[in-house]
C-alpha cells in the first residue's frame, strides 16, 4: 500500500463523533490489534483494512473512507464485530459509512454494488417483496451486463426456480411509506 502524507487540513474532528452517534458504537476505543482485519474474508479485496478504516475514522479522514472500496466490498459477515476485543461493532460502522457515502454523494468505488442495492430496494418498494426476475432485470439494465451469469439464470429458469409473476403484498402502501419516511 502506498504511503500518503496526511495534511492537517484533511482531518475532520467531527467524523468520529458522527460515526459513533450513527453506529451506536465506540469507534474511539480501537487500539489497533488488527483482529478484525486478520479474520476478514474480504480483506484481500480492500484498499484499506477494516482496522485502517477505523483508524481513519478516528483521525477524521472523511473523504478517504467515504470514497474507499473497502466499505463496498465488505460482505457484512460480522466476523470483525464478533471478534473485536473492544466490542466495536465494525460491521455496523461499515453500514454507517456506506449510508454516509451515499447521502453525501461521495460514494465512488464499486458502482455495481450500489446498483445492486438500488435494484434490490426498488423491488421491495414496488411489491413489498423481492421478485427475483424483476430485480435481476433492473440490475442488468443499470449495469448493461446482460450476459454475465446468463448461463446460471437459464439453468435456474429451466428448473422452475425463477418465478415469472411477482407476489405483491396487501401492505404495499405501508412499505412504500417506510421508504418515504426514512
Amino acid at each position: 500500500m502506498p504511503t500518503k502524507e496526511i495534511t492537517e487540513s484533511q482531518l475532520d474532528s467531527q467524523l468520529v463523533k458522527e460515526v459513533e452517534a450513527k453506529s451506536h458504537t465506540k469507534v474511539s476505543s480501537c487500539f489497533q490489534c488488527l483482529k478484525c482485519s486478520s479474520g476478514c474474508p474480504l480483506s484481500y479485496e480492500m484498499d484499506y483494512l477494516p482496522a485502517q478504516v477505523i483508524r481513519m475514522v478516528n483521525l477524521g479522514l472523511r473523504d478517504e473512507v467515504l470514497k474507499s472500496r473497502t466499505i463496498w466490498v465488505c460482505a457484512s459477515c460480522e466476523t470483525c464485530t464478533t471478534r473485536c476485543p473492544n466490542d466495536i461493532d465494525i460491521a455496523h460502522v461499515m453500514d454507517t459509512l456506506r449510508e454516509m457515502a451515499l447521502r453525501s454523494g461521495k460514494a465512488e468505488a464499486e458502482q455495481d454494488m450500489r446498483r445492486f442495492h438500488e435494484a434490490f430496494l426498488s423491488a421491495i418498494k414496488t411489491w413489498g417483496r423481492v421478485h427475483e426476475l424483476q430485480m435481476i432485470g433492473t440490475y442488468k439494465l443499470k449495469t448493461r451486463k446482460f450476459m454475465e451469469d446468463a448461463d446460471i439464470g437459464m439453468e435456474m429458469f429451466k428448473r422452475g426456480k425463477i418465478k415469472l409473476i411477482p407476489e405483491p403484498i396487501k401492505g404495499r402502501k405501508a412499505v412504500k411509506k417506510l421508504f418515504r419516511k426514512t
Binding site: D95, E99, V130
Partner: peptide, 22 residues
C-alpha cells in the same frame, strides 16, 4: 400474514432506519 421483505443486506447497507423498520 402479508409479510414483507426483510430488507436484506441492501437495506442495512444503505439506510439503517429503513432496515429496522422493514
Amino acid at each position: 400474514d402479508d409479510w414483507n421483505c426483510c430488507g436484506a443486506s441492501s437495506a442495512h447497507s444503505t439506510n439503517d432506519k429503513l432496515s429496522v423498520a422493514l
